[in-house]
Amino acid sequence: MAIPTLFLVSLIVFGLQKLLPGDPLLTMAGEERDPAVIEFLREKYRLNDPFYMQYLYWVRDVLTGDFGNSLRTGVPVSTLIAQKLPVTIQLAVMAMIFALLIGIPTGIMSAVKKGKAPDYAANAIALSGVSIPNFWLGIILIMVVSVQWRLLPASGYVPLTEDPIQSLRTMLMPSFVLATALGAYLMRHTRSAMLGVLSSDYIRTAKAKGLMPRVVVLKHALRNALMPIVTLTTLLFGELLAGAVLTEQVFTIPGFGKLIVDAVFTRDYAVVQGVVLCTAVGFIFMNLLADILYILINPRLRHPQ
């Protein structure tokens, strides 16, 4: 499944570049538009070769980590990605941890206390988590936590390798903001998965054994409810990367999101292409990982009859 998808994505990304308006060579050749220069460039960039050959050359370059250079600054796209990707991954991982820490326990509690006060409270919080816009929450947090209370930095980024504590401190608010919608989503899914599992026959069996409610819920029910949640979490991680764009803008974090926004506004197609390809590969990898995890945690698939 992953291989044909990758092929398709690479074809689209490559094809889009070909379809883009304007001939980059004309820009490169400068004012004179000397036919000889243009022909030289055509040869150099293999533009005279058939489409599929161009594609194969391009694939070879990409596979060796050569995404071309930024049209604006001339810096290799791979270097830009290598700089920015870790920032966004740190943001996304921290956001995911937040979302899991918020979503799963409240989801469990909400299911166990269905129809009682804790359930209503959790649902109300989840609803606000989904409906509060990230940029608004981000700005409010900056105003209160950074400006008024002076507790956390309002913006910027410190690499984890340089100063771990400061790095975590700068990322705390952005990752929390990014986590809200996801946490709410995970909470709802955990709740409904737990409700489904809690009414199943094997939970009655677990109680009939005399197991304590804690064991029944956290072992017998959660183990089964988590199966779909693990898959969901993996898939959502990809979406987090997409959601990071806005959050990075609000907190002016020099990450992947900022890279692509800047590239789009300056029409730096080489960078856009590299980033899009990278994101697509990330998504496909996450899908693959979700499938693998699903098999690993599901005894039915791990031990066929």
Partner: peptide
């Protein structure tokens, strides 16, 4: 429960936890 009083249910196909 499960000690002095125990119970067997009607649905053997769904009464065991699939995860253990």
């Amino acid at each position: 429960r499960g000690n002095d009083i125990a119970m067997i249910f009607q649905e053997p196909m769904t009464s065991l936890n699939p995860a253990f």
